[in-house]
């Protein structure tokens, strides 16, 4: 019995190996490496996107999600950068984190290690204040910050992330200074804000929509208002040109064959107009913004420049 299994396994492997030479992509399962544990935000995004990607890649291809957690996604994304350039290994990609790590830590990859397929989620930053602080409008907040530099404490998740970059932009634009209190992740930062232990917080819109009654949401860092909180004004409306957020998408190793790359980007492109996909993403609190191919690569370059600028002006480490 065992021998039969062995022969069968060898035979299938042989077919699979020789098959790739002339069959068209994709003809075997495509692996998506997620740099975080199952159940986290990035993992949920990957698993929500997977069935739609299967549909648009066609040929009955199956997408297999593999979690490689650790070091804020760095272990997973390094594995993607070093995998075979055949389009059968993709990975999730977070911005600005993945680019910031190339500055503040020794990383075995850089911006040129990837083929940029698509950004799928843009979770914009929001500025929130505790009810206790009494700073319930952007105007009051900025007036207080100007009157007492460094007096306002700002809770956020770790340094070198989107929250930190937003604060940096705000400080440069308005000539203010705040005291940064970097918590380990957004949830403890939000809890400290609700208890009034910090006066202000920088979070993402998906993290505050259920808490609108307990904290003041002053504005959202988008070009236009978010469908998640239509009553929250943008910063632009309030005279501060702040646009920033946390992005999640998909990359493959650099040097993908052209036909494979075109096919993958085309499949991601179709997500833009898929209503069912958008509904599935809203249900998991993921604000969708699909940006594919070259546009995604340009977005990545912009964020790398921003990170470099912040790193040069005020290194956080």
């Amino acid at each position: 019995m065992q021998r039969i299994f062995k022969t069968l396994a060898v035979a299938t492997a042989f077919v699979a190996v020789t098959g790739t030479a002339y069959a068209e992509y994709p003809d075997k399962p495509v692996k998506v490496i997620v740099g975080y544990s199952a159940g986290g935000g990035t993992d949920v995004m990957a698993r929500t996107v997977a069935p739609f990607l299967e549909k648009y890649l066609g040929d009955g291809v199956s997408i297999v999600v593999k979690n490689v957690p650790g070091a804020s996604g760095q272990i997973g994304v390094t594995e993607v950068a070093n995998s075979d350039k055949d389009g059968y290994t993709l990975g999730t990609y977070n911005l600005p984190g993945m680019m910031a790590r190339t500055l503040d830590r020794k990383a075995d990859y850089d911006a040129s290690s990837f083929t940029y397929l698509a950004n799928v989620v843009n979770d914009p930053n929001v500025i929130v204040t505790s009810k206790k602080s009494g700073l319930d409008t952007m105007e009051k907040l900025l007036a207080e910050a100007k009157a007492n530099p460094l007096a306002i404490t700002v809770g956020m998740s770790s340094l070198g992330g989107d929250d930190h970059f937003l604060l940096n932009k705000l400080q440069t634009m308005t000539g203010t200074e705040f005291t940064i209190v970097p918590f380990r992740g957004s949830a403890p930062a939000r809890t400290a804000l609700m208890g009034g232990h910090v006066a202000m917080g920088i979070l993402n819109i998906s993290e505050v929509s259920a808490f609108k009654d307990e904290i003041n949401v002053l504005g959202v860092a988008l070009e236009e208002r978010s469908e998640f909180a239509p009553d929250v004004p943008t910063f632009k409306e309030q005279g501060v040109d702040l646009v920033n957020g946390s992005m999640r998408g998909f990359v493959a190793p650099a040097g993908l064959p052209d036909d494979v790359k075109t096919k993958l980007i085309a499949a991601f492109d179709k997500l833009k107009d898929d209503a069912e996909f958008k509904a599935a993403m809203s249900a998991t609190a993921n604000p969708v913004q699909v940006v594919t191919g070259d546009a995604f690569e340009a977005l990545n370059a912009d964020l790398l420049d921003l990170a470099k600028k912040v790193w040069k002006e005020s290194p956080w480490r």
């Binding site: 650790g70 804020s72 760095q74 272990i75 390094t78 830590r105 020794k106 340094l159 970097p182 480490r317």
Partner: peptide, 20 residues
């Protein structure tokens, strides 16, 4: 692992597995 505020590596011996 990396320190809770600045994220500096401590006793990780350049192993990513120890970073968290």
């Amino acid at each position: 692992g990396s320190d809770p505020i600045f994220g500096n590596d401590r006793y990780t011996f350049d192993r990513l597995e120890l970073l968290d």
